[in-house]
Amino acid sequence: MADVFQATVRIFRYNPEVDTKPHWKEYTVEVEPTDRVVDVLHKIKWYQDGTLAFRRSCLHGICGSDAMVINGRNALACKVLMKTLGPKVVIEPLRGFRVIKDLVVDMEPFFAKYRSILPYLINYDPPPARERRQSPTERARFDDTTKCILCAACTTSCPSFWANPHYIGPAAIVQAHRFIFDSRDQAWAERLRILADRDGVWRCRSVFNCVEACPREINIKKAIAEVQQAIITGSRDL
């Protein structure tokens, strides 16, 4: 490989069993430009230092396991190529969550917020024998927000969330949007009530770090605005 280069990778390390506080550890790794950051983490873990902990599974941006802070930005380690970072890389865990070990954080508070918005289709009518009909236009209405993989990159990039950990955060709003604007759903008004709470959608200060952080390129700004609009008008037919 012609373009192999040496990268210096500085990683946030913390193991509550032995460390009183977090520290940095630096590794030198030979990388190819097309290596993903997750490949580099694997090279470190497998061949240099097996004590390093980070979550990962699918390795291609679909499962949401490996959101972390890479050179100051939230991203999935499996979707960032080394050639876009160059020879110096700094990796930290997502901000705003308790660190369990190294790059592994406690996601439970995040999932609790997800669960709070009633993240499931609610339709009180008995289902028909075949599919419920939905026009392509109705289906397109919420297409974007169905892409969310619950990686938490958006929520943990949000200054409002850093300032107030009770803020429900962009991910939960995106998930709520997915149901509120689904023509088959009948509990949208209830979800709007939940999001109108003081730790709900109005905590958004329109900084929109989340838009840049989303590895699925969901237009979160639009989703939040639509939810806010629906609350104001009391209608989902915007």
Binding site: N123, E131, R132, P136
Partner: peptide
Amino acid sequence: IVFELEHMGLPFDRTPEGKI
């Protein structure tokens, strides 16, 4: 079972008539 998934909320792509 595909209809059951649809009833659970699975957002399938749709035909112009609104079918899966």
